[in-house]
């Protein structure tokens, strides 16, 4: 059996650490009582973390991190089959692909990509839950729950971005 080079070993260790970070974040997000819910508004920290992992690890690893995050979220959500797996896989893949081709890897691009991904997820949630079902009060729900949840989610970006960067720098 071929021995792992020191570089490859560090990459595997780093990705294992990222997988653990993802798992911990999924558990924190899905367990009631770990994250405060001011005025009933909820946060989805898996989105910024997936984007940051895609940015730092590039497209293919980002795709698999996103898929993993989405599958765990799906296992505990009321969403249709594989819904979050597809959304987060897309977010991780596109973030990595954009950083590899046209964007720089910094907090501003992380903000831009997280804003886009989070906005897409909460707006799709709202469309599926309210608009496609024809429920009343859809506009008010968007303003009082979905948009505030989107803003709340963005608060987790700096933490995710710097946590991923520190881990990557330590295990580069």
């Amino acid at each position: 059996m071929m021995a792992l080079s020191a570089d490859n070993k560090r990459i595997y260790i780093r990705r294992a650490v990222f997988a653990l970070l993802l798992l911990a974040t999924a558990v924190i997000q899905n367990t009631k009582g770990f994250l405060p819910e001011p005025f009933g508004v909820r946060a989805f920290p898996l989105i910024p973390l997936t984007v940051c992992l895609g940015m730092h690890e590039r497209d293919v690893p980002g795709l698999f991190f996103g898929l993993g995050a989405g599958l765990i979220w799906d296992a505990f959500s009321a969403a249709p089959h594989g819904y979050y797996a597809f959304l987060l896989m897309s977010a991780g893949f596109l973030s990595g692909a954009l950083i590899a081709t046209v964007m720089r890897n910094n907090i501003m691009t992380a903000l831009l990509l997280t804003v886009t991904s989070s906005f897409a997820v909460v707006t799709l949630n709202w469309l599926i839950t309210y608009v496609f079902n024809g429920y009343g009060g859809a506009g008010m729900a968007y303003l009082t729950f979905y948009l505030p949840s989107f803003a709340y989610t963005l608060l987790f970006l700096p933490l995710c971005f710097y946590a991923v960067r520190v881990i990557k720098n330590k295990l580069i």
Binding site: Q29, N30, L35, R42, F44, F76, A78, A79
Partner: peptide, 14 residues
Amino acid sequence: VIARDPGDKFFGFT
């Protein structure tokens, strides 16, 4: 009750 989906506005749980 082991989990609650933060994206479910209608209080569903696992």
